[in-house]
Each structure stands twice: as C-alpha cells, then as structure tokens.
Design a protein around this nucleic acid. Structure first.
Lengths: 217, 217
DNA sequence: ATATATTTTTAGACTAATCTAAAAATATAT
DNA sequence: ATATATTTTTAGATTAGTCTAAAAATATAT
C-alpha cells in the first residue's frame, strides 16, 4: 500500500467516524486539500483493491478490510505521537507532522515492539484512543465542557480540535490533560463559561469549551 | 529531497568511501539494483541541484552540499538502528530494512532528540560510526581479523559485511561486538584461522576473518 | 416540475521515477 | 592503430498520482 493510499483510507476513516454514513468525494477532497477529480481516481483504485465500497455518485465507505487498514494507520500514528511526547520531549502541538510521516513505516515487529516499549498506552497525547493490533479501542465516555451545567465538574481528558493554535492556547493557560475543571458560572448571552482550574478562575468562550472533552467525576 | 534522491546520495557516498574517486554509473546501478539509464537520469537531477559533480561519461562525485546531505541520511539510518536494537529488542540482523525507511523521516528536532534520548551513541549495532549533526565522525582504527598474526589478539568492534546471513552466522557462534578474539594458529594453505573466543577455540575461514574488524589491544 | 446550482466523474495533460532499446562514447586487445 | 567490447547516454514509453476543464449526474428552489 502506498503512502497516498494510506492517507486516503485514514481520511475516509476519520470522516466516517464523524458522519457515520457514506463519505462524499468533496468532503475527502476538502480534508486532504486536494481536488475532487483526484479523489475519484484514488477511490476507484481503492475499490479495485476491496478497501472501499464505491458506487458512482453515491459516496464511499470502508470495507472491513479497509477499516482494519485504516485503524492500523491510526494506531501507528498515535503510538508514534505518544513516543514523541513521552520519550523525545515533543510537546503535544509538535507531534502531528512527524507522526504523519512515521505512520507509513512498514514493519509489524516495529509497531508491536514500540507498543510494548511504551507500556501499551491507551490514549495519545491529545486523549484520542490508540487501537490495538486488532483495531479495537475503548472510547472513554466523555462530554464536551460546553455541555456541562453550572456546578458540575470533571477531568480534562481530550481535545476535539487538535490544531496547533488551539493546543498552544491551552498550554499558555496551563490547561493540560488530567486537570480538574469545574463550571462556576455560565453566561447565557454568549455561552461563555467561567471555570475553575488549577485553583484559578478563567472565562472561556463557547468555541473553547466546545473543543474540550471532560470525563465527569 | 525525495526518498529516491536520498537513496542515490547515500549510495554514492558509500561507494566513494570504498573507492575514494569518481563513482561510475554502473557501480551505482548495480548497488541499487536498478538500470544505468535510470542512474543517468537521477544524476542529472542531482547535478542540477548542486549535490553532485557530473561530467558526461566521467562518473560522479559528491559536492560538499551532497556530502553533508548523504552523511545526514547515514546518521539517521544508524541512529535508528541503534534505537531498534537498544530500545525495541531488534537483533542486529533485523534492523537494516526498517532503518532504510526511517532514515527518510524529515524532522531536525526528531533526530536531535533521538540522539539525546539514546545518549549520543558513537557506533551503530554493526560497529559503524554515527556521524554527528555536522557530519563528523571518528573512525576507530581497526584492522581485519584476517590481518592479525599468530598470537595477536583484540576486541571485535565491527563487521565489514553486514548481510543478514553473515550476522546470523556470527550469532550462531556467539561472536558478538565486544568479544575478545585471539589468533591461536593460521593455516597457510586456505588462510583459515584458529581463534580463541569466549574461552572456546573455533576455526574460521578467510571469508569470515576478512569480514571481522578488530581493535588491537 | 422544471430551471438552476452543486457535486461528481471523465478526458486529457503533466511530473517524477522508472524501464527498454538504440546510439554514442570510452576502454581494451591484439 | 584499429576492431571489438563495454559503458554510458539518449529517445521514447510506462505507471502513479496529481491537475484543469468540460461533461454528466444529482440536489435544490420556487
């Protein structure tokens, strides 16, 4: 499987998780920053290899074979991210680009041994689940900070948007995975919330609270 | 720089070390298991980028820029090999193929941090020197086992041929880097040598002794 | 229901890296 | 020194992945 094929599978997988139905050509093109015509070409190739189900104009979905391949790539990506943060002192906003490269390295032994070396981690540095060799993973049951009500609290366990800018925003305010967050007050007008974190009070906008996953305690 | 360009540079580098003069198109083709015409095409591309000196029919050599690029790839290859053996329990005959992939990952921070994480190793698992970030490395002054005379001894510090079969041959006989080896006797007829290693005596052919590097003590 | 807008596919072209076959240059042998 | 062999380059084709522009299919709006 080529790098490009792997990248398409991964993108289709991520889009499927979001939408839970057939994925459109344009959605893939947009997420990959490429053209719809290129997507059509590649989809045909993947369908030929039984990695996706495809009927002209009807969007695309992963076959079981394609799903396992996609999960394997996600597994590799997230294990490498964990490695970079835990062993090589990368910060969580620096890992994505390098993991995008490392995820394509082909060696079953490598990924098996890396997993062992890291102690079989279950979440990557952004709180996303790391699939095991069979593609299975457990999703924490978590809610968005924006869905909590006044007085409720929980542990910060993941981010929805893991863009560099958002992650750096959190770093600047010392909001890290594992922090306890409590809702002090919600402003109905702009839906901003006043939260208590690290013994400090902080007001965050809806855009922020809608990107923070909380495990309620 | 593409993977392919990097592989050509690396090959030219290795061939230059061996021959110490301009490298022929055919030599590159043979080492890379490709066709001379493909080599010519790529050489032109590398010359265009000022990575090699090239005059039609006269062979190629690396420019300073090309030499540094090549050493950087070798540095990455050997650091990853060290990582695989030291941290992921690979054996020295399993690392090459995976390192061939890992050497192409692009991230200065990655390789800098990996080097630090590994404790700035100076030799890879086969005893080959690991260049530093500037491309400098120290070559142990070592001799071939086949050049030692009766009664001389030293430490096994490297292999000349690091093919899987040769490395597995050594493993089978418990001949590992760091072992002390002493020449008990040399047979003039077939140039085989009787050596003492790990308290045992062992007869090895010229083909073997000619692939083992020794640091005399 | 039909016109209009949007999405998707197709047709044809481009680049990088490769190949085969033929031509050109260089090396070798007597 | 010249014929022969070898090496290297060129010319032209192929494949994977991409693109633009146009055509075809589907969705939307009134």
């Amino acid at each position: 499987m080529t790098f490009s094929e792997e990248n398409y599978l991964k993108t289709i997988f991520h889009l499927t998780v979001l939408s839970n139905s057939a994925v459109s050509t344009n959605a893939i093109a947009e997420m990959m920053e490429t053209k719809a015509s290129s997507v059509t070409d590649m989809i045909k190739k993947l369908a030929e290899k039984d990695l996706v189900n495809y009927k002209k104009y009807q969007g695309v979905s992963l076959t079981n074979k394609g799903k396992l391949a996609a999960k394997t790539i996600v597994r590799k990506h997230r294990l490498w991210e964990f490695f970079l943060v835990e062993k090589l002192d990368f910060s969580w906003d620096e890992v994505h680009e390098v993991a995008e490269q490392l995820e394509h390295i082909k060696s079953d032994k490598l990924i098996r041994e890396l997993d062992r070396f890291l102690g079989f981690p279950k979440q990557d540095p952004h709180g996303d689940p790391i699939p095991d060799a069979e593609g299975n993973f457990t999703v924490l049951n978590k809610v968005l900070l924006s869905d909590l009500k006044k007085g409720e609290s929980g542990i910060f366990v993941g981010v929805k948007d893991s863009s560099t800018t958002f992650l750096q925003f959190l770093d600047k305010r010392n909001i890290a995975l594992g922090s306890e967050i409590k809702i002090i007050e919600k402003e109905p007008f702009d839906q901003s919330v006043l939260i208590k974190i690290n013994e400090q009070e902080l007001r965050v906008s809806k855009l922020i609270s809608g990107n923070i996953y909380i495990k309620t305690t």
